[in-house]
């Protein structure tokens, strides 16, 4: 049976907002929750202790918790934070979003999930991660259904049932990471004195083409898709393919309704009425450009 996971919050929310959000999440029908800051190390509304407190609460509510690492790790300070997160003392699984995290997790034998930015495009690389202790893996966003199916069929039988494949199924797709902060650039501020201006955009800053086409969404050093990706209606097919987890990416406004829609469909074994809407996209899955919408 396919299960629902909730990805890490990609934006810079206030501490209270984050606590309130996870209070609500504890009541939602998701089985796994990814926690932590994955975009920018300057975002320090919550410290590791705060995240661990939320992790504890969610665990008490019956959720499986996984701590997500940063994605672009450059400074020595970021590396030591990473090392700390990857040591198993806190008792939670880790989502490794950089090979540095894979290294530290495998050194300290911390169970980990291989994140989407590790670029696991084929059966061999997935097998390598499983051999190093990965408990599951997240498919790169741009892989098609067909390619994923071939990958899963290509896995050796000994590991195939341990792959625990996860597919990003709803939300703004993280398309790129940079050394430069584009939110600070928009405000004509250098990154080193950014005034944490990304905090003013709890759902990112929309970027349109000069023809007013919705295009991208700026979130600090991360660039996201302008449209929300929506594969909810594919849940039955995903289950048939052997996918274990469908990931929902948090947003301020509609996480609850998205999760409930999907959970309800799975529970009732019914189709999802909410197919991909006009302002959403699903192209990657169907072998098209990511921003396309296949009806």
């Amino acid at each position: 049976m396919v299960k629902i996971s909730l990805g890490p919050i990609q934006y810079y929310w206030k501490k209270q907002q984050v606590f309130d959000f996870y209070n609500e999440v504890s009541e939602l029908p998701v089985e796994r929750v990814y926690l932590g800051e994955t975009v920018c190390s300057k975002r320090r509304e919550l410290r590791l202790e705060d995240w661990l407190e939320i992790a504890q609460q969610l665990t008490t509510s019956g959720k499986q918790v996984c701590l997500s690492t940063m994605t672009l790790i450059e400074a020595a300070s970021e590396l030591s934070q990473l090392k700390k997160l990857c040591q198993a003392e806190h008792g939670f699984m880790v989502e490794a979003n950089d090979y540095g995290a894979v290294q530290f997790c495998s050194e300290s034998q911390t169970p980990f999930i291989a994140g989407a930015m590790l670029n696991l495009y084929n059966h061999r690389s997935v097998e390598k991660m499983l051999a190093l202790g990965a408990q599951g893996w997240v498919m790169p966003y741009e892989i098609t259904r067909q390619s994923l199916s071939a990958l899963l069929n290509g896995l050796s039988p000994e590991v195939a049932d341990k792959a625990n494949t996860e597919v990003f199924s709803w939300g703004k797709v993280p398309l790129a990471y940079s050394a430069r902060c584009f939110t600070a650039r928009h405000h004509e501020l250098p990154k080193d004195s950014c005034q944490l201006v990304c905090g003013e955009y709890p759902e990112g800053l929309a970027l349109e083409s000069q023809e007013q086409q919705r295009f991208l969404n700026i979130n600090g050093i991360q660039t996201q898709s302008g449209h929300s990706y929506n594969l909810l209606s594919e849940w039955r097919d995903m289950q048939a393919l052997g996918i274990t987890w469908m990931r929902i990416s948090p947003s301020l406004s509609n996480t609850k309704s998205i999760v409930e829609t999907l959970a309800n469909a799975i529970e009732m074994n019914s189709d999802i009425a909410r197919a991909c809407a006009d302002d959403e996209c699903n192209g990657y899955w169907f072998g098209r450009s990511g921003l396309e919408r296949v009806a």
Binding site: T71, L72, M117, N119, Y121, P140, Y141, E142, V173, L175, A176, Y177, S178, A179, R180, L216, T223, S225, Y284, R288, S289, G290, L291
Partner: peptide
């Protein structure tokens, strides 16, 4: 490249093909 290489999907988002694939 403005983005971290290997972690940029802007091209495939708009035009199908990406540097990675």
């Amino acid at each position: 490249c403005i983005m971290a290489e290997g972690r940029c999907f802007l091209s495939s988002y708009v035009a199908g093909a990406s540097p990675n694939t």
